[in-house]
């Protein structure tokens, strides 16, 4: 199993939990003790890191190419791009569904807790990570005929 395929399995099973726990803890701290610098920083760091984590292989892949240690080739790039785009499509549908559901449940004159927005974002992150991991795993599974063990 090649390194990137192992990473996609790791992403699929553990990525969601790794990003979900610190984000949820930050929201809980903000809810319980009020807004302060620490939970805001923790939440921002988690969602930026997790939401843009997929950019890292492209950066390190290019660095590795320059050093002639290629672990992330054109095929990996293509799979990664496809997986990210599929995940973004699902993420978008989730955001539209979340806002329509909130509208229907509360009514247009109603109000929602301010914590709903970060929770929605965190839910989106979980869905994004899950779908990206799943799509990469499926794409590697479909295209692994000629790979070395």
């Amino acid at each position: 199993m090649i390194q990137t395929k192992i990473e996609s399995w790791f992403y699929f099973f553990l990525g969601t939990a790794c990003f979900l726990i610190p984000g949820a803890v930050a929201i809980f701290i903000a809810y319980d003790r009020g807004i302060s610098f620490a939970p805001v920083l923790m939440f921002t760091g988690t969602v930026i890191w997790a939401g843009l984590f997929w950019l890292l292989p492209f950066t390190f892949g290019k660095l590795g190419k320059r050093k002639k240690k290629v672990t992330f080739d054109e095929r990996d790039q293509l799979i990664q791009k496809k997986a990210v785009m599929v995940a973004y499509v699902v993420l978008w549908l989730y955001f539209v569904t979340a806002s329509v559901t909130a509208w229907c449940l509360v009514g247009p004159q109603g109000s929602i807790s301010v914590n709903i927005m970060p929770l929605t974002l965190l839910g989106g992150l979980v869905i994004f990570t899950f779908v990206q991991g799943l799509a990469s795993t499926i794409l590697y599974g479909r295209n692994d005929k000629g790979e070395k063990a």
Partner: peptide
């Protein structure tokens, strides 16, 4: 600590 429900669709 509550916001109008219309904020979410406007943000989208």
């Amino acid at each position: 600590r509550s916001i109008s429900v219309n904020v979410m669709p406007i943000v989208i």
